[in-house]
Amino acid sequence: MKLIIGGCTQGKLDYVLQKYDMDASKIWDGEIPKNIGEQKEPMVINHLHNWIKSQIAQGGCPEKEIRTIVEHYPDCVIISDEVGNGIVPTETFEREYRERTGRILVELAKKAEEVERVICGIGQKIK
């Protein structure tokens, strides 16, 4: 699995598509395959942070689900915004979202064979 992170609108998806020469039909945007097997590799999950947010809003457990996905798609590419670099929000939900997204990304980074941080469309390999 490869993890791509960075601020919003930094060209992360374009960077991935170009680097891995993928076509756009394989992108899951703010969601993940509901049934393992409905999607074959290679697979890209874009805007993972949006999916995490929707899962938390529904009272789900994104930590567990993404673990399952990574087990079944060891060659997938996961793209997420970094959302923790701001003033800690006063709203409980927003605080929880940022904290849990951060921790999920730390866990994914540990498992990833490669982590890149994209800024201005340029990727820096940090692992």
């Binding site: 970094e82 959302v83 923790g84 670099n85 701001g86 800690v88 605080r95 940022r98 904290e99 849990r100 997204t101 951060g102 921790r103 990304l105 730390v106």
Partner: peptide
């Protein structure tokens, strides 16, 4: 230095 949930 790091953000929320960064593992800092």
């Amino acid at each position: 230095i790091g953000g929320s949930g960064s593992g800092k």
